[in-house]
Design a protein around this nucleic acid. Structure first.
Lengths: 335, 335
DNA sequence: CCCTTGACTGAAAGCGTTTTCATAATATAA
DNA sequence: TTATATTATGAAAACGCTTTCAGTCAAGGG
């Protein structure tokens, strides 16, 4: 730990022979400063390798120049992708991001959120999560808030999300159009709104086609591979037959596929499989997975732009995104 | 944006009828305070919902109570897993983490690093990356530094990593013991040290068994699925035959598997495949992938403990971890 | 030539804590 | 009881910046 004395604005002022106010002014550039002094200051800054103390800045200005992002869990494939794109978009702004994770739990989420609030973030992006709407609305009165990957009715124009219902509907409809009549559905954790919406979309497609929803063909998973595998095991022990499975996300589809493989059931020859998300891996599974793509890049960019505009108090528009069907090789006609 | 006046230490002092110094003292608990005043302060804090201003704290104390973590890219499967475990371990300490990413580029990494430094992190964890050793040593003189997933000779006892050479050696040896003589290797990006080390481990195993290294069987990939696929395509067009492939990481193995599948080549019947990392997905591929496990959990926890101890100036020990062979179903005897 | 106006600038007042310093109050030793 | 440690406390000085306030100075208007 070296004893290098931190160089402060004082040092710059002294070296450039101006007052600290002037130094501050040239650095912030909001107020005109005589050209000569400006260059002198800039030179001093460079020579001394001055870097402002962010804490002092924030304390004095009341702004932290920081955007808080609350995600569920780093290591969650889809959310990580989203997060990545948000960061990417924030990279060239004067704001820096600070990330916290809520571990899929409301309590931990609130705790993480408080940490973010304590750090005086100037804006907040929430990724998914189940923090009560009421709470969100409260937060929204305190600071700019954008919610990504979740639809909160009371904050509709601050939500960047895809239409899960219609995505699930399209997926199911696709299977129906392929001739499938007995379509199973492995849902995500039903405590999460997107899982519910997807399930509803699935049901709607069936009903619309005059197929009665068979609750025995619906199994609740928890978005991870393991639950997809287990769900198929369960499905197989129940008597009800089925020729296709719509999985609440890609990871569960991977698990489902393995379970089928274990039983010697071929995809898509015997059973068609369709996922949701289009994780980067899905193009490389065997066979490559047909799935509904959630455009993480678009969502991430939109969320970043939205928060930036919101903080500047500039108008912006958010249009809900649509999941897009990516047809690969895990689905086929029902013979 | 509500006009709720921030409650400060002043308000607490007033309400509890003590000086702000006393409030500060009971809050930090380092100095004795009369029981009566203590409870009065605590009550006031609770009643008013006081939350200290971190910027003021940091400015005054010179400590940010923050640990910077520089990763390569959020969305990088293995590093995310590592990151996740580091965060997990840091969660119940009084430190909070602030994450930056370097996008696999030295320049961006340095830039991100400076952001972290500007935020006055009290400690720094680097995940992977290629920032020059020289630079790292310089940083190390300024603040506590731990490097995860990379071995920096000059900072050996501050590096938490697995032995890539021996891991690759073991993987290759396993294939040799299975009777394979023509073993291809798809390396990671050879600008990264771990890719090089793994490649060396591979070569060493071959040489040790009296098999001459065939450079035509070594293809450089870039750690993503796509490159694994391409590598196999290349391998297949070259005349040299091979019966097994050792991939520099799991993701490339996925790509390789797809390429083989496309040609109707079966894994493991025709060709054995072995990966590196043991990403969570690898247990669910078809067939499940044999691979070398890098214990992300252990590494993450070790890194977190190390930085904590380093900051407290307490002794700690880091022992290099070993990659462990996870035998699944993508490898078999060479007939 | 005097008065306005506008562009710059420095002094100083915060921002909300921590921490040093001095003092008052209390306990201990002589 | 008196001198001497101890302990508990408040005042005030940092911490390093931003921003307000009050000018100073030169240019422009009448």
């Amino acid at each position: 730990m070296s004893i290098v004395k931190k160089v402060t604005i004082q040092d710059i002022a002294q070296k450039a022979d101006v007052s600290i106010s002037t130094v501050s002014r040239v650095l912030n550039g909001r107020v005109a400063v005589a050209e000569a002094k400006k260059t002198a200051v800039l030179k001093a800054v460079k020579d001394l390798g001055y870097r402002p103390n962010v804490f002092a800045q924030s304390l004095a200005s009341g702004q932290s120049m920081t955007i808080g992002i609350l995600t569920q869990e780093i290591r969650s494939m889809y959310y990580d992708e989203l997060l990545h794109h948000i960061l990417q978009e924030l990279r060239d702004t004067s704001y820096s991001a600070i990330i916290a994770d809520g571990h899929w739990q409301v309590a931990k989420g609130m705790q993480a959120l408080n940490t973010l609030l304590d750090r005086q973030v100037d804006g907040l992006i929430l990724i998914g999560g189940s923090i009560p709407e009421q709470e969100l609305i409260r937060i929204n009165q305190t600071l700019p808030l954008i919610i990504a990957g979740r639809h909160v009715p009371g904050l509709a124009n601050q939500c960047v999300y895809i239409d899960n219902f219609s995505g699930a509907y399209k997926a199911t409809k696709y299977l129906i159009d392929l001739g499938h009549r007995h379509i199973a559905h492995i849902t995500g954790k039903l405590s999460q709104i997107d899982a519910i919406e997807r399930c509803n979309g699935y049901k709607h497609a069936l009903e619309e086609s005059g197929i009665v929803v068979d609750e025995n063909l619906i199994i609740e998973g928890h978005f991870h591979e393991q639950s997809g595998l287990m769900a198929v095991e369960m499905l197989l022990t129940r008597a009800n037959m089925f020729t296709a499975i719509f999985c609440g996300n890609d990871q569960m589809a991977y698990g489902a596929k393995l379970a089928l493989f274990r039983r010697g059931i071929r995809v898509p020859d015997d059973i068609s499989l369709i996922g949701f998300d289009d994780q980067s891996m899905s193009a490389y599974t065997i066979p490559p997975l047909t799935t509904m793509r959630q455009p993480a890049g678009q969502l991430g960019r939109a969320a970043a732009h939205a928060i930036l505009n919101l903080m500047k108090n500039e108008p912006f528009e958010i249009r809900p995104f649509e999941a897009r069907m990516i047809v690969r090789e895990s689905t086929s006609w029902h013979r």
